[in-house]
């Protein structure tokens, strides 16, 4: 699953993530992070056997966890399937189908917004 972790200023200098990775059998990938002494957010993807226990641990340590579902959406009316976005996606979440329809994959998207800004017809929106 993908989720935003919100860090309050009181916990930013604690090594919670390294404890998490050491103590639980999980796969853990940081997709985006913006944490300063004033707190911040981290977009993560978490999987593995002890995923549920790991999430409980994070919440116990004071991290707010907000799961995200839909990240990227294509407006079928506006999209002309030009493919300008394809090579800009850092995680290959945008791929052409056999008939060159531009397909976007919610599961892979990390919400960086590069496609949104570069779409000539403003057809891609990133929403949570």
């Amino acid at each position: 699953m993908k989720a935003w972790l919100t860090f309050s200023p009181s916990i930013v200098n604690r090594a919670i993530i390294s404890d998490l990775v050491k103590n639980f059998e999980i796969t853990f990938n940081i997709l985006r992070a913006d944490i300063t002494p004033k707190g911040g957010k981290m977009l993560i993807e978490i999987g593995g056997k002890q995923r549920k226990q790991a999430i409980k641990f994070l919440e116990k340590e004071g991290i707010k966890l907000t799961p995200i579902k839909k990240v990227v959406k294509k407006d079928e009316e506006k999209c002309i399937d030009c493919g300008a976005c394809i090579s800009l996606c850092p995680v290959k979440a945008i791929c052409p189908a056999d008939d060159w329809t531009v397909d976007v994959d919610d599961q892979l998207c990390i919400g960086c917004g590069f496609c949104t800004f570069s779409c000539p017809t403003r057809a891609i929106k990133v929403t949570e």
Binding site: G83, A84, W100, T101
Partner: peptide, 23 residues
């Protein structure tokens, strides 16, 4: 094909014109 080699690195490509619409 979606990628092309530039100086030994696979680089992603974008069509810009719509092949779907062209067809």
């Amino acid at each position: 094909t979606g990628t092309i080699e530039l100086d030994g690195v696979e680089v992603p490509t974008s069509p810009l014109s719509s092949h779907k619409k062209a067809l």
